[in-house]
Amino acid sequence: MRHAPTALSKLDSEREAALRNLDPLIVTKLWDNPCWLSFRLNFIAFRFNDPVYRWIEARYGLVRPEFVALYAVGLKGGVAAKNIVASAGLPKNTLSRAIQKLLQRRLLKREADPEDLRSYVLALTPAGRAIFDETMPRMVQQQAAMLGTLTEAEQKQLCELLDKMVIASPIWPADLEPESNPS
């Protein structure tokens, strides 16, 4: 079995002691696992997403796909639904329903696409902008808490390494099974 580059046997005593505070299955999945990268990324993402999305749902009544769409439009107004789908990692039909609910709640509005008047783009309404602006500080705080264990140089290095992976992502296999060619 291939282990994470920081296999338990090579950890310093301080980190090894800290691992004792984790559930043993977490340690196995994140260190003694040939797929350590995906499990660590998912673990970290969950530790960010779970409290954030639970808080947003309780406070604003928005489920995750709805907030994903609202957040995307908040970051870059004037985007089409297809852009949100491309960036979100959620199914098209799930995001389509979420966008419809946001339009019904008047948190998003449709506007004619200035580059193609046959299409429309999405923008935040004042109520949608208020939610976006109110949630951003909490999300930034959550991220800061997670990054707080890293030095500024380590944070920069982590960002650069993740940049490289994201930029390379279009060449990764999209399917595990090669498509069969009908003869």
Rank of each mutant, 00 (worst) to 15 (best):
L108K: 01
Y60T: 00
V166C: 11
K164E: 12
I171E: 00
N49Q: 12
N83Y: 08
L25Y: 10
A145G: 15
L22P: 01
E115I: 10
N181F: 10
M136H: 13
E179G: 12
D163V: 06
T149N: 08
P65A: 00
V140C: 08
A145Y: 12
F39H: 09
S119M: 14
V63Y: 05
E16L: 15
D12A: 13
T125G: 04
L150G: 04
R2V: 10
D133Q: 11
K82M: 08
A86C: 06
W55G: 04
L25F: 12
L8W: 09
A174T: 13
N42S: 13
S180R: 15
Y53I: 00
L158K: 06
A72K: 03
P170E: 00
S96D: 07
R64Q: 09
I131K: 04
Q142W: 02
L102K: 00
R110V: 03
R59W: 10
K29N: 08
K82T: 10
G128I: 06
L19S: 01
L19C: 11
P5K: 05
A98T: 01
P24G: 01
R129F: 05
N93S: 12
Y53Q: 03
N181L: 14
I99E: 03
T94E: 03
M136D: 12
Q141V: 07
P5W: 05
K101G: 09
K164L: 11
E154Q: 15
L161K: 15
L41D: 12
L8P: 07
S119R: 14
L75I: 06
L124Q: 04
A88D: 00
L103Y: 04
H3W: 11
L75Q: 14
I56F: 05
G74W: 03
P91T: 04
S183M: 15
T28N: 11
L102N: 02
L70F: 02
F48M: 07
E160Y: 09
G78M: 05
D32W: 02
E154N: 08
K29F: 09
V63G: 00
K156T: 13
A174S: 14
I99N: 02
D163Y: 11
A112F: 13
Y120V: 10
N33M: 03
I171F: 03
F46D: 14
D32A: 06
S180D: 15
R118D: 12
K164A: 14
L122G: 01
R15M: 10
V27S: 00
Q142G: 07
A123T: 13
T125D: 09
L95E: 04
E111V: 15
K76Y: 08
Q155W: 09
I26H: 07
D175H: 15
A86D: 13
R106P: 06
L162N: 11
